[in-house]
Amino acid sequence: MLACLYNSLMFSMLISVLLFQNTWLEMRINIGCVFFTLVFFLFIIQVFNRNLRKICGTFSFAVFSFIASYMGIYFILGIDRLKIIPASIIRDGIMQNNIPFAYINYAMIAITFAGLSAVFFTRKK
């Protein structure tokens, strides 16, 4: 279950960053809201599909989703935009535009590694 939530967070950010690249879309919708909607639906899909849950609900898949998402986002955005765009997506999603990007980046890094550790320690042996 935790691994499914982790995968949802990782892949939702990757998809949101891809959507963000489209200026027309970015000017018209709140990509931050899209991010949280995607997290919800990707989680539901993984949890309620038994076959998918078997594949995605493992620690190794969580590691894959972490690496694939971070690499994908890095290649799409480059280092300078990486420090701003994912944080701005979260900031728009929670509608708190006065929170500095750095704080959101720290929180995202903490969630990434704490989440991966939690998936590792709660895995079925």
Binding site: E26, M27, R81, I84, I85, S88, R91, N98, F101
Partner: peptide, 13 residues
């Protein structure tokens, strides 16, 4: 007003 740093690296109208 306040500066929105998001649009240092993203186009806007």
């Amino acid at each position: 007003a306040e500066v929105n740093g998001k649009y240092f690296v993203t186009p806007t109208k």
